[in-house]
Computed example of a mutant assay.
Amino acid sequence: MERVPITRAGYENLKKELVNLKTIERPQNIKAIEEARAHGDLSENAEFDAAKDRQAFIEGRIQELGYKLGNADIIDPDTLPKDKAVFGCTVILENVDTGEEVRYQLVGPDESSIEQGRISVSSPLGKAIIGKKPGDELVLQAPGGKRCYELVEIL
């Protein structure tokens, strides 16, 4: 069984989504299917087709979340070593060319949000950061060309 690394906050967000799907989305969808069915001929009933599609999405997502939560390996960033970049840690990078500093937390794909400073360990930048130590340089092949960063600090 594959363990899925996740932060405590990410785990709680997935749990909230699962509860929402089971207690709100699913019952609303069942009601929408019943209402669409009441309109008669199902062969040309767009509302019915849309509700059935939504039902398939909801059920698939419930199964996916159940798997991820059941196999979650919750990582507490506070217990991580600060000598090299690992899942869950927060790093400060400096763009070697511009001197601009950025701060990112390395998280799983379900938790990533560039706006909130969380990047996936499976992203190109995330992969480049993993295993690096303060003072190490990393080179990223970006769409606009190569970017060089120095890992300044692990928080």
Rank of each mutant, 00 (worst) to 15 (best):
M1A: 14
E2S: 15
V4F: 08
T7K: 07
T7I: 02
R8P: 00
Y11L: 07
Y11E: 07
E12H: 09
K15L: 09
L18V: 05
V19G: 06
V19M: 09
N20R: 15
N20H: 11
L21D: 04
L21W: 06
T23C: 01
T23G: 04
T23V: 09
R26T: 12
P27M: 03
Q28F: 11
N29S: 07
I30Q: 13
K31F: 04
A32K: 14
E34N: 15
E34P: 03
E34C: 03
E34A: 15
A36L: 06
A38C: 09
H39S: 14
G40L: 07
D41Q: 12
E44R: 15
E44W: 06
E44D: 12
N45D: 09
D49Q: 14
A50W: 00
A51I: 11
K52Y: 07
K52R: 15
D53W: 09
R54H: 10
R54F: 00
Q55I: 05
A56P: 02
F57R: 15
I58K: 11
I58T: 11
E59L: 13
G60K: 10
G60N: 14
I62A: 09
G66D: 10
G66R: 09
K68N: 09
L69K: 10
N71R: 15
N71K: 14
D76T: 07
P77W: 02
D78W: 01
T79R: 08
P81E: 13
P81L: 04
K84C: 03
K84Q: 11
F87D: 04
G88P: 01
C89I: 10
T90D: 02
V91S: 06
I92Y: 05
V96R: 14
T98F: 03
G99E: 02
R103P: 03
Q105R: 14
Q105S: 08
L106C: 02
L106T: 06
V107T: 05
G108C: 07
P109V: 14
E111V: 06
E111W: 06
S113I: 01
S113G: 08
Q116N: 13
Q116Y: 05
G117F: 01
R118E: 03
R118P: 01
S120N: 06
V121S: 04
V121Y: 04
S122R: 14
S122N: 12
P124C: 04
K127V: 10
I130R: 10
G131P: 06
K132Y: 03
P134V: 08
D136G: 11
L140D: 01
Q141F: 00
G145T: 07
K146R: 13
K146W: 01
R147M: 08
R147V: 05
R147N: 06
L151Q: 06
E153F: 02
L155F: 00
L155D: 07
